[in-house]
């Protein structure tokens, strides 16, 4: 046992280094929230530039490849690499178009981190609430984080007990089992085309 002691302490030191190097999950969410609030509170920016700025933050902080795989679940296996890539691109656009619309309804809400906990296989959940003051009830938002390389990335958002990944998964499952993968991709592209996307035309996918 004695011989093992130096080895063990070496392992402990190594793992401490590993945790010290990466940002804590709480800090990651807090930092993201701060970045978003700075944009939303900036009176010099018009809506379009706010949407664009929030979108940039989301692109840097969310892992859309993982999110796409999780929402497609079994259907992922049925899809060709081209279909998968098309899906990820369109789904990312869908999320940014629909949630970007909300920048103008910002009314001095603040974000308060209320807790965090470790999940299986190194994932992490950070619990927060959007405080809307005395005028409205707080909204509970949990962020599911996964380590991608050296950094944390958001892979799901659970709003008032509703996981977005679960919700989109069941919708896509229904559409794919009823109409097929190609029809689902067309539907997604149509939905994006009808919304006001701020992503330039040339970056849009085929179809």
């Amino acid at each position: 046992m004695k011989a093992l002691a130096p080895l063990l302490s070496f392992a402990v030191v190594l793992s401490l280094c590993a945790t010290a190097r990466a940002e804590s999950p709480r800090d990651f969410v807090q930092e993201t929230a701060n970045e978003v609030l700075v944009v939303l509170k900036n009176p010099a920016l018009d809506s379009d530039s706010k949407v664009a700025a929030v979108e940039q933050i989301a692109y840097a902080r969310f892992d859309f490849d993982t999110i796409s795989r999780l929402v497609l679940a079994r259907n992922f296996r049925k899809m060709s690499p081209e279909q998968r890539e098309r899906f990820t691109r369109e789904f990312k656009k869908h999320l940014s178009v629909t949630y970007g619309k909300n920048v103008d309804s910002y009314a001095n809400e603040t974000i308060e981190i209320t807790g965090d906990r470790e999940e299986p296989r190194g994932d992490w959940t950070v619990q927060s609430k959007i405080v809307r003051g005395s005028a409205a009830e707080d909204i509970l938002v949990d962020y599911r984080l996964r380590r991608i390389g050296d950094d944390w990335r958001v892979i799901d958002v659970v709003v008032e007990r509703i996981s977005l990944v679960s919700n989109f998964r069941s919708q896509l499952q229904e559409i794919i089992s009823r109409d097929g993968v190609d029809a689902m991709l067309v539907m997604l592209a149509d939905k994006n085309a009808s919304g006001e996307s701020i992503i330039p035309e040339d970056e849009r996918g085929p179809s």
């Binding site: 629909t98 007990r161 509703i162 679960s166 919700n167 069941s170 919708q171 896509l172």
Partner: peptide
């Protein structure tokens, strides 16, 4: 927001209900 964000509002509502009731 829910109307804009969903692909199939019926399924979105059903899933949301089931998730909330589970918890």
């Amino acid at each position: 927001g829910a109307r804009d964000a969903s692909f199939d509002l019926y399924v979105a509502a059903r899933n949301a209900y089931n998730q909330q009731r589970l918890e």
